[in-house]
């Protein structure tokens, strides 16, 4: 077996870390371009999330299978070719399933190739872990990415068009914030989500510090 494999067992953490602690979008800030560009509606966000998850799953499984046969010197090039092949597959699948979504996502389907999450996973995880573990991990990462896209997509669609999945939510008196559907809205909504998470984290840290302080004082007293 590969000597570098540190831990062979698959735990819940293998899957869950992609959802929260190492969330590709909110924590690692990877793959920003599709996150901002296609999240002007929930349907687009979902399609993009699923497409990326599919490519992520297939490419990291293949990389993991081939990890002992790819020479170190050409590994990045090989990963890119593997990823590009799967993206071409996804491109044709989406075109066949729904032309409407294909037109809405435009070039961003093909741009999955240069999504740093996929190459990053191939390089830092799939090339070092066995297939089943890689599969679980990339499923988690893909789910985390999809959830992040949905977080942005739902807020932007709700505020920008007053609808959710095309269904009107507010009454007719609601004046849509068109800015949310336009490019600046993407930046603002993602910034707001990051602020929210930073706030939660800071509150947790402060609680921990206070608890530690109390304990120290109790010991001193």
């Amino acid at each position: 077996m590969n000597a570098k494999t540190p831990d062979k067992s698959i735990t819940a953490d293998t899957f869950l870390r992609g959802l929260w602690r190492e969330n590709p979008v909110f924590v690692m800030l990877l793959g920003m371009c599709p996150v901002l560009a296609v999240t002007n509606s929930v349907a687009n966000a979902l399609a993009m999330g699923l497409a990326t998850t599919f490519v992520l799953l297939c490419s990291s499984t293949l990389v993991s299978l081939l990890r002992r046969h790819i020479p170190k010197e050409v590994r990045i090039a090989s990963y890119i070719v593997i990823i590009a092949s799967f993206v071409t597959v996804v491109d044709y699948i989406i075109q066949a399933v729904s032309l409407e979504i294909y037109n809405a996502l435009g070039a961003f389907i093909q741009l999955i190739v240069v999504n740093c999450i996929i190459l990053g996973r191939a390089e830092s995880y799939a090339s070092r872990h066995r297939v089943s573990k890689t599969l679980v991990n990339s499923l988690g990462m893909g789910a985390g990415f999809t959830i992040a896209l949905l977080c942005l997509g739902s807020v932007r669609e709700l505020l920008g068009a007053g609808t959710l999945l095309g269904q009107p939510v507010f009454g007719a008196a609601f004046e849509p914030w068109v800015i949310m559907l336009l490019p600046p809205g993407g930046f603002f909504v993602l910034g707001a989500w990051l602020l929210l998470f930073a706030w939660i984290k800071e509150r947790q840290d402060r609680r921990q510090r206070e608890a530690a302080n109390l304990e120290a004082r109790a010991h001193a007293g």
Binding site: I179, L182, P184, F187, G191, L194, L195
Partner: peptide, 22 residues
Amino acid sequence: PSISRGAAMSLMLAGILSLSFM
């Protein structure tokens, strides 16, 4: 404010920049 340091602030800046380019 300390919570907005780093990525969140950069994104807000980018948003304003993008707004002006509109």
